[in-house]
Each structure stands twice: as C-alpha cells, then as structure tokens.
Design a protein around this nucleic acid. Structure first.
Length: 647
DNA sequence: TAATTTTGTCATGCT
DNA sequence: CGAGCATGACAAAAT
C-alpha cells in the first residue's frame, strides 16, 4: 500500500507539473491536505473536541481565516477548503461522479473501430476488466516490443507512448511532443529515458506490449494494472464514505458507472492550446478519429482495491475535473464535455447517485443504530467537515444558524449524517448532490440544506414526529431507544424542532422560537433544557479533551524535565571531577613553591603550616595555614549542611 | 460479572 | 440578568 501510495503521490506531482505546462492549475496541497488530514483527525485527531465549538460564532470570520482561538488547526483546514472551493468554481457543472483511469496502452489504427466506440459505449464496463484477454491479444498484435515494428505497423503509435507518458509519468512533454511529430517513440525507449518510477510504471506497458517476454495470465496483467494504475477517480467529498460504507453495496454500480474510456490525450490536447503542434493536430483531425487514434485511457474499474479507490484516486479525481473544466473552453473541450462528461453525468449522477439514494432509502436501520449515539449527540470529528461543500453554501447563507464550516463544529452527531426520517422531512430541498457531498462525509447534524431551512418553514406541528410514526417501511424498526432522552421528550411534547436545531440555533432565533410559536410552559422549559444540556454536553466534551491534552502536555513536560535533570546531574559530576583535579594540581603546586621558600632563619617552610594565597591584584602571599584551615572547615561545614539538606 | 472507561448530566462559578 | 462556557462530581452506559 505504501508503494502504491508513493506511486500515486509521485504520479500526481508529475501530472500536476504536466498540467501546469498546459495551463491547468492544480493545487495539490489543498487536495492532499483536505483529504488526508481529516482522515487522520477522525482517528487520532488532536482536537476533535475543539472543533465542536459552535460555528455560528465563526461564520463571519471564516473567509478571513480567523477561526476560533481554540482551534488553530482549522486555519489550515479553512484555507485548504477555500482553495478547494476555488478550484471547484473553476468549472461548472460539477460532476460528483467517479472516473476510472488509467491503463495506458497503444491501440493501432485497426483498433480504432474497437476503441473508438468504446468511448461512447460507456455502459460497457468491461473496457479492460472483463476482457483482459482481448486487451492482451490486441496489445500483442499491435504492440511488438520493438519500437521499429511499432513504427512500421502502427504509424500513429508514436503518439501514444507520449500520451502514455503524459499520463503523468514523463517530464519533458514538449520534447516528446516534437518527437511524436517526427517519429514514433518506442515504448521501451521512453521507459528508459524516464525516472525510476516511470520505468516501473512503464514496465507494465512494455510487458503488455511484449508478449514474447512475458506471458502472464491476462487476468494477472489486468490485476497488475488495476493495482498500479486503476485509479478510481471519485469526488472529493463522498469518496471515503463511499468506500467505507457503501463499497460493498455499490461496488458493481460504481464499476459500471465509472468504467469508460477517457482519452486523456484529448484533454491534454484540448487544454494545451499553447502548444501549436498539438493545436494543429487537434484541428486537422476529426474528433472521432482523434478519439480513436489518441491515447486511450482504459478505465479498469476494478472495484476491489478499496485503497486504490479511496486514496489513490483522489488526486486524479481533481485532476480529471480540472482537465475537464479547463478544456471546456475550447472546441475540443466541448467535445470532451459531450463525450465524457455527459457520460459521466449519465453514469455517475444518474447511476451512482440514484443508487446512493436508493440505498439510502433502503438503508438498514441497523446501520442507523450503529451510527447513532446514545443521545444522538456525539462529538464525532467530521471527516468530511473540512472538505464539506456545504461550507461554501453556508457561507452565503444569512439565516442559517448552524453553519458547520469545519464540519465538526457545533452540535453534531453521526445520527444526522444519515438521512433519518425526522431530518429528512426538513430537508425539502434535498438533492442527490447534496446527499453525496454531505451525507456520507459530514457526520454532523448540521447538514447545509437541513439547517439552512428558514425557521419559518420549520415549525409545522408534528412535522418531525410524522415521519417517525408514519414510516411504514422502516419506521417501526427505527426504535425509540435510538433516540436520545431529549429527543424523546421533544417528541412527547410535540416540539417541531430537532435537538440539534434547538442547540445550534443562535440565541436570538431561539428566543424568537420560544416567543413566536405559542409553546406551553412545559415546552418552553423543555426547549431550554434541551438547549442547555446540548451546550453543556459539548462543553463537557471540550473540557475533557482539554484535560487530556493538558495531561499529555504535562507528561511530556515531565519527561523533558527528567531528561534535563539527568543532563544536569551528569554535568555536575563532570564539574566536580574537574574541580577535584584542579584542586590536586593547586596543592601540588603549593607544596613545590613552599619547598623552595625559606623562613627568616633560613629553614624551609613547612607545607603543613603554610599555604599560598592568591590576592586580588595577582600577587601570591604566603600565609599561615590557620586561616585557610578555617576556611576549609567552614567549607566542610557548608558541605555538611548541604548534604543534610539533601537528606 | 466485575473493573474500567466513556459519556451525559447537573451544579456551580465565572465572563 | 440571562446566556454561555468551564469544570468538578456523579451516574449510567459502554467496553
């Protein structure tokens, strides 16, 4: 997995460089950080509780990166999300669909007939997966290992290795483009001229094109490519949720939805308006022929590699979206849009999202039960929060009282991440896109569509209770014990607001609700209690989180001080040893000097009775030993005192 | 089933 | 004065 991750990361970087050459702006950091960091925070997030800070306090400062002081990490999140939103706004419409890539191989002119229609025949999911033998056979026929043979048999193949390299794994794109105008570049040559990673990746291409050297089973080749290069490109928001929660159910449909032959070269040439060569070639050829002759990116939608779907696909998803968006400015971009994005729409939106909707409608209540916390109020740090698209929507909202900018901020729980009945009824403007972007990732109560509902439209008496009671399909299975006590109480008193609404709405709106709906005193009391308990629950969670952090910090401080103490003790021992050595040298010197001195009667001085004293002016004076003896005695006394103190 | 941890709630003080 | 936050304490639920 690490190797695959390394490949994909490096591939992403190279592809980013490539795209930047053709004028496509790609912000890797935002994607990588936006995607991976929340995942980290889900599991070991250092401040998941801090992110629960009610965000309506932050709504005015998010764009300015001024976030809650307790949550400094959100600065990074919000900055990344802002960049992501900018990228998303580069092109519209946005396709929350998936796209599989990137098996790169060569297709001869005789293969056009087979490959070309495959681009349009999107419902065919076996572009390389179900017919691996055909792939190998075609490759073996048209892709001999010799580059010269490639030139002879398929004069157009010279373009494809470049495109293969353009798939993200070659650097000198311009050079290769020039070469592809002059002469075909053999695959092996390209592979040898690249970096180690390129060689590793292109090794598969060579293997495919060289049946004489490698005769692995076709399924092995396909699996190899699936593991290495089959990158299921998924929308950033619903990626991990789809993987983790619905992969088993939707795997087949995802496969069918995203398996299509997408010509990256189309996108490249389309986007590479700056390259005259590419533009000329693009204009000189019919679109259909382009699709047939250009590099073909077989989408091997092997749905099995979850990590390939979950991790590796992400950067490429953004790249694909970007490519599509940028290319839409040109004529070929239009072709690309029509040929690719329409299919993506059909397959991805209609297929996947309807599948999601259907699966959500028929979702097992047990799942809800698993997701639901005891009281429905859980402090789950939302993985999708930082990347939740709801932020942009909410930022423009003026009346929302639960602007979950960071996704985990506010009164959140997993229970509302699933469209449970009571919540679904408020979500009158629910759409598949909203679902795919928020439901699976945003584990908070504060779904944008949900909380952006004007409060005026909310209070339909019993509107929350209706679905709970009227559900014929799974209502009875939605057990009451899954509701929190406050939810049950609110239900009992027919309060037309959810607990999270009550807790998250601003105090002004809360007061308006209390005054303007004719609630009974019991209802008002319950509403206040629900709000107070919900606030306090979050406060308690934050408090505990802070306490744990404080404990951790103190433990680290203790360790640091222990290390410092050991260091100081060693230093003290060394100093004492040095001082002892110096004292011995002084004593020896004193004896030598005194032995050379004589008293008034000409006798040598007794070293036991005299000593040398160094004055402040540098003069050395002979003194009787008494005074030094006194001083030493006092020194001993102080030492004894110190020792006693220590004991 | 007991021990431990987690979580929700209440009371209280403070801003 | 009320709302909200912080936190200790307690109890119930979960592990």
């Amino acid at each position: 997995m690490q190797i695959a991750k390394k490949y994909l990361t490096e591939g992403l970087i190279q592809l980013t460089i490539l795209l930047s050459l053709i004028g496509v702006r790609v912000d890797i950091d935002s994607y990588l950080s936006d995607y991976y960091t929340p995942l980290i925070e889900i599991n070991v997030g250092p401040s998941s509780a801090y992110t629960q800070t009610p965000f309506h306090n932050l709504r005015d400062t998010l764009d300015g990166y001024s976030v809650h002081p307790k949550c400094p990490e959100l600065d990074y999140f919000f900055a990344s999300r802002r960049l992501l939103d900018e990228v998303r706004t580069l092109g519209s419409p946005r396709f929350p669909t998936q796209l599989n890539a990137w098996l790169v191989h060569q297709v001869s002119a005789t293969d056009k007939a087979d490959c070309g229609p495959s681009t349009s025949n999107n419902t065919d999911t076996n572009s390389g997966l179900e017919n691996p033998g055909d792939e190998v056979r075609n490759d073996s026929e048209h892709l001999p290992d010799s580059g010269q043979e490639v030139c002879k048999t398929t004069p157009e193949l010279g373009q494809r290795p470049c495109s293969a390299g353009a798939c993200g794994f070659f650097k000198e794109e311009e050079d290769v483009k020039v070469k592809e105008e002059e002469e075909p570049v053999p695959l092996t040559q390209l592979a040898h001229s690249s970096t180690l990673e390129q060689e590793s990746l292109l090794e598969g291409i060579t293997a495919l094109s060289d049946p004489a050297r490698h005769h692995p089973p076709a399924i092995d080749i396909d699996q190899h490519w699936s593991n290495l290069l089959s990158l299921s490109v998924t929308d950033l928001d619903d990626l991990d949720s789809l993987v983790t929660e619905r992969l088993s159910d939707l795997g087949t449909d995802i496969t069918s939805a995203i398996s299509q032959d997408v010509s990256l070269h189309d996108a490249m040439v389309t986007s590479a308006g700056a390259f005259g060569v590419a533009s000329e070639r693009a204009e000189s050829r019919p679109v259909t022929q382009q699709q047939g002759t250009l590099l073909r990116l077989d989408s091997h939608s092997d749905a099995s590699p979850g990590m390939a779907v979950g991790l590796a696909a992400l950067p490429f998803a953004t790249v694909c979206n970007l490519t599509g968006n940028v290319s839409s400015h040109s004529a070929l971009g239009g072709c690309l849009d029509e040929a690719v994005f329409d299919q993506i729409n059909q397959l991805g939106l209609e297929g996947l999202d309807t599948q999601l909707m259907g699966s959500l409608e028929s979702i097992d209540p047990q799942v809800l039960e698993d997701l639901d916390s005891d009281s429905g109020l859980s402090l789950e740090s939302s993985s999708g929060g930082p990347v939740s698209p709801g932020s942009s929507e909410m930022s423009s909202s003026s009346s929302s009282y639960c602007e979950d900018e960071c996704g985990a901020t506010g009164y959140s729980s997993e229970v509302d991440s699933v469209p449970s009945k009571g919540i679904m009824d408020y979500n009158t403007t629910w759409s598949p896109i909203d679902l795919s972007e928020s439901v699976w990732h945003d584990h908070s109560y504060s779904s944008p569509a949900f909380f952006n509902q004007p409060s005026v439209t909310l209070p339909h008496k019993g509107i929350k209770e209706e679905p709970l009671s009227e559900d014929d399909d799974d209502g009875p299975r939605f057990d009451d014990r899954e509701l929190s006590r406050d939810e049950l109480r609110a239900r009992a008193l027919c309060i037309p607001f959810s607990v999270l609404q009550i807790v998250n709405m601003p105090v002004e709106e809360f007061l308006e609700v209390l005054d303007g709906h004719g609630f009974s005193p019991e209802q008002v009391t319950l509403l206040r209690d629900i709000r107070r308990r919900g606030k306090n629950k979050l406060a308690a969670q934050n408090c505990r989180k802070r306490k744990l952090d404080a404990i951790t910090g103190l433990q680290e401080e203790v360790e640091r001080l222990h290390a410092q103490r050991g260091r100081l003790l060693r230093e003290k021992q060394l100093t004492a040893k040095t001082m002892g050595a110096v004292g011995q040298q002084i004593k020896q010197l004193t004896r030598d000097v005194l032995a050379r001195l004589r008293d008034n009667s000409g006798r040598p001085l007794n070293p036991e009775r005299f000593t040398l004293q160094c004055g402040a002016n540098g003069r050395v004076v002979v003194q009787p030993v008494r005074r030094p003896a006194v001083s030493t005695s006092t020194g001993n006394k102080t030492d004894k005192r110190k020792k006693e103190k220590k004991q």
